[in-house]
């Protein structure tokens, strides 16, 4: 779906940290250290960050600056982490958030 910009006509090469591995729902994904978790997910084409508590509807990035809290996920066991402003580190365990849990609704 989405991908990274290779060379930007105005910004040139956009500086990135070291490439690192992290997991999304247990699957290995590549990203760059220090970029927001949400950016790494988006670059990997992963759109759905969570399913809402009441209606179980999918949500993803909306404001990308930490205001709307729609992009929250369970990160290293902590729920409600705003992935658009939380820097990625190597080995992070990022999980889809169902309500406020990382367990799908049928298992809750």
């Amino acid at each position: 779906m989405a991908e990274r910009i290779k060379e930007h006509p105005i910004l040139g090469d956009i500086k990135k940290g070291e490439p690192v591995k992290f997991t999304f729902d247990g699957k290995e994904v590549m990203g760059y250290e220090g970029e927001p978790i949400a950016a790494a997910l988006k670059a990997a084409g992963l759109m759905v960050h969570r399913y809402t508590k009441k209606e179980h509807k999918p949500r993803g990035i909306f404001c990308a600056i930490g205001r709307c809290t729609d992009c929250v996920m369970v990160v290293d066991g902590v729920p409600n982490v705003r992935t658009c402003i939380t820097p990625l580190t190597a080995g992070m365990e990022v999980k889809t958030q169902y309500g406020v849990s990382d367990k799908p609704f049928e298992e809750q």
Partner: peptide, 8 residues
């Protein structure tokens, strides 16, 4: 009253 405190 949720997480975003009415931002949106």
């Amino acid at each position: 009253m949720g997480l975003c405190q009415g931002q949106t």
